[in-house]
Simulated assay, not measured.
Amino acid sequence: MKSVRELGERARNVRGLTVLMIFGILIITAFIISMNTGYTRLSPAQVFNTLIGAGDAKQSLILFEFRLPRIVISILVGMGLAVSGCILQGLSRNALADPGILGINAGAGLMVMLFISFFPSTAAAPVFLLPFLALLGAGMTAALIYMLAYKRHEGISPTRLLLVGIAVAAGISAAMIVLTLRLNPENYQFVATWMAGSIWGSNWKFVLALLPWIVVLLPFAIYKARVLNVLNLGDQTATGLGLPIEKDRVVLLAVAVGLAGSCVAVSGGIGFVGLVGPHLARRLVGPKHQLLLPTSALAGALLLIVADTLARIILQPSEIPTGIVVAVIGAPYFLYLLARSKA
């Protein structure tokens, strides 16, 4: 029996690595197509010449200052949101959970809304203040939800955590609607576009601001994959195996908040990535988080880079928020998953 289990485990690992390679190839393909796509078309030859320094000034400006930063941010945000959703699904043991379910997106959006409401324009303070405010809002919201859901003798119930998160998110959304009444048209347009999921921080400064969060938190989440596997067995089993469940749950929740908050800060309220990415990965590689987390990251990156490319070309010369394209892709899939869960 041991040899059979070992063979099965080896087959799953080979399948997982194959899936990772396929996702990697698809991301590279989407990356190349996205570089060639936009209002000003660049042929593959022009892109290649520009990359090696043989392009003209206009081509270099378009590729290096506009398209490449946005493409890289799309990949990083997709990875961060998908891994955050995967962690939250593991913690809550609810396959329909994503960063928005705990009010993380709403908390970040509320802080941005407060800033816009009390300053006449975004130029009133350094633009880098908005990402920090969004991250602060996401962290404060998660802390509030955790405190409301925590009971001294019972700890954190996954179901109660989700219900409290939904309630807090609904309250924050209502507060944001009230705050829109004091916005002038220009700021209202900025906030509406931000909440719809527009990758507004599309320059290299925002790439450098987001990259450390992804580089640090994503490997740490994969390092904690075994803990997520044990938590999925239930609190009693995890406690029996000697796992400090409350401590690990807080740490993993902090990782999920850090990933989602930092991503939302530069991408706005993009939803469904944290839902669709982990689900697609789970169907391909199974529930083992050592493979599920990296596969979710690549699936989220692929989803967002494709959505952002479509957002730039569907209504040229105009551009639609990336979050709308993701919603068009993700909403039917969410309904499909909901129908299957009821069955």
Rank of each mutant, 00 (worst) to 15 (best):
I62S: 00
V178I: 12
T50S: 12
G286Y: 09
I22P: 02
D248H: 15
Y223A: 09
A149V: 04
W213P: 00
S34P: 04
L211R: 05
S84P: 07
K247Y: 12
L310W: 04
A339R: 15
A254P: 12
A175N: 15
S92K: 10
R5G: 05
Q59P: 00
G8H: 13
F190M: 12
G16R: 01
L163W: 03
A125W: 14
V257T: 15
L291V: 02
I320S: 08
L280C: 10
G53W: 13
S92L: 13
L303R: 01
P332F: 02
A221R: 05
F119M: 12
A221D: 06
A95F: 08
A254L: 13
P332Y: 03
W200E: 08
I166L: 08
M21F: 14
V227K: 09
A174F: 10
Q290V: 02
V285T: 10
L42V: 03
L135N: 09
R93W: 06
S296W: 06
I199Q: 04
A221N: 05
H153K: 05
D248C: 09
V72Q: 08
I313T: 15
V251W: 06
L96Q: 11
G90F: 03
L298D: 05
V266Q: 09
P126Y: 10
S267R: 02
G155I: 08
V72L: 13
T29C: 11
R283E: 04
E154K: 14
R70V: 01
L129Y: 10
W204H: 13
F118A: 04
A97T: 14
G55Y: 11
E319N: 09
L208K: 15
L218A: 05
A174Q: 07
I305Y: 03
Y150D: 02
A327V: 00
G201F: 02
L293C: 04
L76A: 07
V83Q: 02
A343W: 07
I156H: 13
A169T: 11
A167C: 07
V273F: 05
G109Q: 03
F23L: 07
R283G: 14
I270N: 03
V326I: 10
H289L: 05
P185Q: 07
P69L: 10
K247H: 12
V250H: 11
V326N: 01
L211M: 06
A45I: 09
G53R: 11
G268W: 06
N13P: 04
T295K: 03
W213D: 00
T141V: 12
V178W: 05
A45C: 01
I177L: 14
R340C: 04
V230P: 07
I324V: 10
I145Y: 11
V127E: 15
S296V: 02
R340T: 01
K58M: 11
S173A: 08
